[in-house]
Nucleic acid binder design. Structure first.
Length: 225
DNA sequence: ATCCCGAGGG
DNA sequence: CCCTCTGGAT
């Protein structure tokens, strides 16, 4: 598009972001939450399980989990050991089982068994911080209170020069300042899809990346040869 | 900063 | 073997 790719990749983030989003949206028109769920509660549980674990693996355990424990009360009253066994393969299973159960107990006692649709109340649930709350708010309630900053969004934001921060909450503030609120939910899904398929942690496929020209971390053609 | 934790890829 | 995967609490 431009005659001077160097200018693009060194341009301010605010100037590059709209084009980055446009290109990624064309590349991943169906980018969306990849955690299987049928309700806000199922998404909340799936998101807690997704910590340091692929969504694919979470999707392997949740069908049986949700069949066995169909609502917050069932999870609140579940046998802890049985719950741990059902989610064992997702890792961190003691912490995750405890958080899921304690969160569900609070949902039952304080929120009438419903998942609250606002950030402040979600953050009172054990095991729920801004990342998880943003996933539930954005996907289940269509509320863009912030930007989901997971391991992919963090890595890509750093590589793309969208932030100079390393703390996820500071990265989130930078992204919220860079993108219009209507793009906040989509932004995370696009970066996550791109992070999984192209810009992976180990060996990013820069030669196959549609936004390489806009990325300060991508090798230049003169370097590649 | 450290701990929790399993599974898959390189 | 080492690194990574839609983190959060201490």
């Amino acid at each position: 598009m431009s005659d001077t790719p160097e200018l693009n990749r060194t341009a301010p983030a605010a100037a590059r972001l709209p084009e980055i989003l446009r290109l990624l949206h064309a590349e991943y028109p169906d980018a969306a939450c990849a955690l299987d769920h049928r309700s806000a509660l199922e998404l909340l549980v799936a998101t807690i399980l997704s910590a340091q674990c692929t969504d694919e693996r979470v999707n392997k355990v949740t069908p049986a989990l949700f069949a066995r424990y169909p609502d917050a009360l069932a999870l609140a009253e579940a046998d802890r050991t049985e719950l741990e066994e059902m989610i064992h393969s997702t890792g961190f299973y003691r912490n995750k089982a405890k958080n899921i159960q304690e969160a569900c107990r609070r949902l039952v006692t304080v929120y009438d068994g419903q998942v609250p649709a606002n950030m402040a109340d979600l953050l009172t649930l054990p095991g729920v911080a801004r990342k998880t709350a943003n996933v539930v708010l954005g996907t289940s309630y269509r509320i863009a209170d912030g930007v989901v900053v997971d391991t992919h969004v963090k890595r890509l934001s750093e590589r793309l020069g969208l932030t100079a921060q390393s703390d996820p909450e500071k990265i989130e503030r930078d992204l919220m300042a860079l993108a219009p609120q209507d793009d906040w939910i989509d932004l995370s899904h696009l970066l996550i899809f791109h992070g999984r398929r192209v810009c992976d942690a180990r060996k990013p496929k820069c030669s196959a990346c549609v936004i390489a020209d806009l990325c300060p971390s991508a090798p230049r053609y003169s370097d590649v040869g």
